[in-house]
Simulated scan of single mutants.
Amino acid sequence: MIRFEGVSYSYPDGHKVLDEIDLQIEEGTFTAITGDNGSGKSTLVRHMSGLLTPSKGTVSVCGMNTLDPSNLRKVRQLVGMVFQDPHSQAVGATVEEDVAFGPENLALEREEIRDRVFSSVLDVGMGGFEERLLMNLSGGQLQKTAIAGILAMRSEYLVFDEITSMLDHDSRSMMLDLVKKLNHMGKTVVYVTHHLEEVLAADRAIVMEGGSVAIDGSPANVFRELYSSGHSIPPLMELAIRLKDTGILENNVLPATVDELMEDLCRSM
């Protein structure tokens, strides 16, 4: 479990970015975090791996306080992060070199490193790309390579910070499918996005506002609360909520696609 207790964070100039966050991420769950720019999303998740530590309060990962420097190595093995720009994480010339970098730093045996690289690239759909130069990969392939790198570290908590923001629609869809697959494999997923339709893939949605948790619940309930408070939500979600309110749509889970909405309507007739 990742636990935030009374966590606040301020920059050296005194600007507060997080304000009294109480939050816990249960093992095996898929949590989506959204909110406007500057709401504190990225600052929040950087605390999960100890890249940032609280100005006030505590963050613990599997009982290890991130304020204790002796815990950080283990915390960063348990919590793997993939960032918006995959180039910022690239450390090798080829896919194999890049994925192997983390396990090599753990001083593992060469055979163990090879096994981890092989299984990780397969898990992300990059089998056969081991010798491919990173400079020749697409944005989506670079993101997959970064994900393979944290899988090779045997990270149990996977934190994705706006990883689809630089991808086209098709690549975004494929990346989200991969994230869902990893969650189904048992990995705990924390997924930061400003694409509201992607929130529907999660079990739980958190909306950040002004450094605080404004809304926390199931995606359906979060979208309903956003809609009722006058916030803009994807048209498909708005239509589904209106259909539910009129009794036409009976499914409690909001549809993620037009096809799903049509299927729900057929079942409700």
Rank of each mutant, 00 (worst) to 15 (best):
L133Y: 05
R204T: 10
I147Y: 07
L18E: 00
I233T: 13
L78E: 11
L44Q: 02
E111A: 10
I206S: 04
G211H: 00
Q143W: 01
S155A: 15
E131T: 05
I206G: 03
L52H: 05
E156D: 11
F118V: 10
E112F: 02
I241H: 05
L151A: 04
N136T: 13
K244Y: 04
S232G: 09
K56T: 15
V192Y: 00
G50T: 04
L108V: 06
D98Q: 09
L52S: 01
V189D: 04
D68Y: 11
N136D: 13
E130T: 12
T164L: 04
V7Y: 00
S171K: 10
R132C: 12
L137H: 02
I25S: 05
F118D: 14
D13F: 00
G149K: 07
E112I: 09
H169Q: 14
R132V: 13
E238K: 12
T246N: 12
E130F: 05
G127C: 06
H184I: 07
S173E: 14
L254M: 07
R76W: 11
G102T: 06
L254S: 04
L134N: 13
R114S: 13
Y157W: 02
T34M: 08
T29F: 07
L106A: 12
R172Q: 13
E109N: 13
T31P: 04
A240P: 06
H169M: 14
L106P: 14
S119Y: 01
D264G: 07
V192R: 00
N251W: 01
L23D: 14
N105S: 02
